[in-house]
């Protein structure tokens, strides 16, 4: 159904500053591309921070409805519990059209992988299927679906569960901005996409085991504008983050059929738009947070 891979747009130059101010002309541009690009990436390579990625993205859920929103999360001075909460809150408010661009800052590949793993486990700890609002029995949620994550690792110790139910798209889309072989290895099976700039790493990705291999995105450093948008007040700096979102062997037709069925019941999720498979963390071996339902 799709002829070219979905695009992720990262704003460069003076555009992040305009985004922070919610500049009307830029918002108008984004509204127009909402149906044609996969998502806009907010806050990539943004240290020191000139904007708050979640705040900007959350406001865009209102001002540019339907736009896919990917927010940067580098873990600096942050805790996985707080990060998991606000990222999932954005996901709910965007009606399941959000994702996260993880990166390492100064942390090791192992620490970033642990952080991503904890955040993803938290996103799965309170399944939305547990929400019942059964007024007859006076049961709001079926607590036998809610589990602690009881994570004890090298860098983090987190009990869970998260106090936000899981996303309509299962999990927000997860992307790792990978810059070393160690990170590329650690990303295997952990995230939906890796974003890679280094040619050698892209080669390593091609050689990797396709089982559990994240899809590849590239082009963050590209100078050329791969998507031309009509210039309004000189706002022609929309730079394509990825003009080649290479996905591993997917059956495009089957996906398209499934998507069509999805769309019949609910608006398309970002995961659906990017043609990414469902993703979850298995927690059935973890203890129940509150025991069985009433």
């Amino acid at each position: 159904m799709t002829s070219s891979p979905p695009l992720l747009l990262s704003l460069s130059g003076r555009l992040p500053a305009l985004l922070r101010e919610q500049h009307p002309a830029l918002i108008e541009q984004l509204r127009r591309v909402a149906g044609t690009v996969g998502a806009v990436v907010i806050g990539a390579k943004a240290r020191p921070l000139s904007l708050d990625p979640v705040a900007v993205a959350t406001a865009l859920t209102v001002r540019a409805p339907g736009l896919g929103l990917i927010v940067a999360c580098d873990g600096v001075r942050d805790s996985p519990y707080n990060a998991a909460r606000r990222l999932l809150s954005l996901d709910h408010l965007s009606d399941a059209r959000s994702g996260v661009l993880f990166s390492s800052a100064q942390a090791s590949a192992a620490q970033t992988a642990e952080r991503i793993g904890v955040i993803r486990a938290l996103w799965n700890s309170w399944p939305r299927r547990s929400l019942r609002a059964d007024r007859e029995r006076g049961v709001y949620a079926n607590t036998e679906d809610i589990r602690r994550i009881d994570h004890v690792g090298e860098h983090y110790r987190v009990d869970g569960p998260l106090n936000s139910p899981s996303s309509r798209q299962g999990e927000p889309v997860s992307i790792w901005l990978v810059s070393s072989e160690a990170e590329l290895r650690a990303a295997q099976g952990l995230v939906d996409l890796v974003l890679v700039e280094d040619e050698q790493l892209i080669e390593r990705w091609r050689e990797g085991d396709p089982a559990g291999r994240p899809a590849l995105a590239t082009g963050l450093d590209a100078a050329e504008a791969a998507v031309r948008v009509r210039t309004v007040g000189g706002l022609d700096e929309l730079v394509a983050l990825s003009d080649a979102l290479a996905t591993t062997d997917t059956d495009a037709d089957a996906d398209a059929d499934a998507d069509a069925a999805d769309r019949a019941t609910a608006p398309r999720t970002l995961r659906g738009s990017l043609e990414l498979p469902a993703r979850s963390v298995e927690l059935s071996g973890k203890p129940l947070a509150f025991g069985a339902a009433l």
């Binding site: 979640v54 705040a55 049961v139 709001y140 949620a141 106090n163």
Partner: peptide, 17 residues
């Protein structure tokens, strides 16, 4: 997360909200 029974609490992060 407090037990959502009998009273569900807030489910979104306040600053994002």
């Amino acid at each position: 997360l407090h037990n959502p029974n009998p009273r569900p609490g807030s489910q979104l992060e306040p600053i994002a909200l």
